[in-house]
C-alpha cells in the first residue's frame, strides 16, 4: 500500500513539475509575444550609440510668429491625435531651418487607423547632471551661430534615422537634466 502511495505521489509530482514548467514557458512566451506585438511599449533608454544634441531653446509665441530669427525654437502642438514637441533649428540670416521632433501620439487613436510603431511615442528621461561627462553632445549654442546653410543641412542629413536625445539647457536643474528623445527628417516633396 505504502509503495503504491509513494508511486502515485511520484507520478503526481512529476506531472505537477512538467505542468508548472509549461506554465512558466507559456507565461514567458506570452510576455515576449506581447513585447513583439507592441514594440511601442518598450521605451528607448539613452545609450552610447545614440546622438546627443544640447542647446538653449526659446519658446514659440503664436502672437509673434517671426520673433525668433536665430537659434532653436520650441513649439508644442496639442491636437486630438496627440502631442508633437518640435525644436526648430533656424537661421533667418543664413536661410535654413530644420526640425527635431518629439512624438507623443495618442496610441489608442492610432490603433484605429494604422499599426503603431516605436517612433509614435517617444521617451523623456531624467539623469544626474554628471551624465553630461559621459557623452559628447553636439552643442548648437556653440556651433549653431557659425553654421552655414550647407553645414546645417549636412548635420541634419547625418542625423536622419538615428535616435537623438535632446538636452535643453532650460531643463537642466541644479543636479539633474532632462533628455528628450527625438528624430529628424528631410521633408518629402512631390
Amino acid at each position: 500500500m505504502k509503495k503504491s502511495i509513494l508511486f502515485l505521489f511520484t507520478i503526481w509530482s512529476g506531472v505537477n513539475f512538467i505542468y508548472s514548467q509549461n506554465v512558466e514557458v507559456d507565461e514567458a512566451n506570452s510576455f515576449n509575444m506581447q513585447d513583439s506585438i507592441n514594440p511601442v511599449l518598450t521605451k528607448v533608454e539613452p545609450g552610447p550609440e545614440h546622438v546627443y544634441v544640447i542647446f538653449t531653446s526659446q519658446e514659440y509665441d503664436p502672437k509673434y510668429e517671426d520673433r525668433i530669427k536665430e537659434g532653436v525654437m520650441r513649439i508644442r502642438t496639442d491636437s486630438w491625435n496627440g502631442v508633437l514637441i518640435s525644436y526648430v533649428v533656424r537661421s533667418r540670416s543664413k536661410d535654413y531651418e530644420f526640425d527635431f521632433s518629439h512624438w507623443d501620439l495618442d496610441i489608442e487613436f492610432l490603433k484605429k487607423i494604422r499599426s503603431v510603431d516605436s517612433t509614435d511615442k517617444m521617451n523623456i528621461v531624467w539623469r544626474p547632471k554628471e551624465f553630461l561627462l559621459d557623452i559628447k553632445p553636439i552643442d548648437l549654442d556653440k556651433e549653431g551661430p557659425s553654421m552655414k546653410k550647407e553645414e546645417a543641412f549636412a548635420l541634419r542629413d547625418k542625423l536622419v534615422g538615428k535616435i537623438i536625445w535632446l538636452i535643453d539647457r532650460r531643463d537642466i536643474t541644479r543636479d539633474s537634466l532632462k533628455l528628450i528623445q527625438a528624430e529628424t527628417k528631410i521633408p518629402e516633396v512631390f
Binding site: N81, L84, W103
Partner: peptide, 9 residues
C-alpha cells in the same frame, strides 16, 4: 506642425 502631426498619424 499640426499638418506634420496629422500626416504622421
Amino acid at each position: 506642425k499640426t499638418v506634420n502631426s496629422f500626416c504622421k498619424s
